[in-house]
Simulated assay, not measured.
Amino acid sequence: MSLWNRHKIFETNSIVLLIGILIVISIGGLVQIVPLFYLKSTIETVDGMRPYTPLELAGRNIYVREGCYLCHSQMIRSLRDEVERYGHYSLAAESKYDRPFQWGSKRTGPDLARVGGKYSDEWHVDHLKNPRQVVPTSIMPGYPFLFTTPLDYRYIDADMKVQQIEGVPYTDEMIAKAEADLVAQASLDDPGIDEMVARYPKAIARKYTGTTTPSGHITEGDALIAYLQMLGTLVDFKLYDNKANIR
Rank of each mutant, 00 (worst) to 15 (best):
E195N: 13
A158L: 12
E122Q: 14
T209W: 03
L234T: 00
I193K: 06
I175L: 08
I139S: 11
E56Q: 02
M49G: 04
F147L: 07
V16F: 11
E173F: 12
W4E: 11
Q133I: 06
P214G: 07
L146N: 08
K8W: 10
I62F: 00
E82K: 09
P191S: 04
K161Y: 08
D190M: 04
A176S: 13
G232D: 01
I218M: 07
I15Y: 06
I218N: 06
K106T: 13
E195L: 14
W4P: 02
H72W: 08
V235L: 03
C71K: 00
Y200L: 11
R50W: 01
V34W: 09
V83R: 03
G117S: 10
R60T: 12
C71E: 01
A205K: 04
K129Y: 02
V197E: 03
V64S: 09
E44K: 13
F145E: 11
D47A: 15
M174Y: 04
L231W: 00
D111I: 03
E44T: 12
L151I: 09
S78K: 12
P214A: 04
V46M: 06
L228N: 02
I175N: 02
G28C: 06
N13Y: 05
P35T: 06
A113S: 10
K207H: 11
V16I: 13
Y89P: 04
I165F: 08
S138C: 01
S78V: 09
L3T: 14
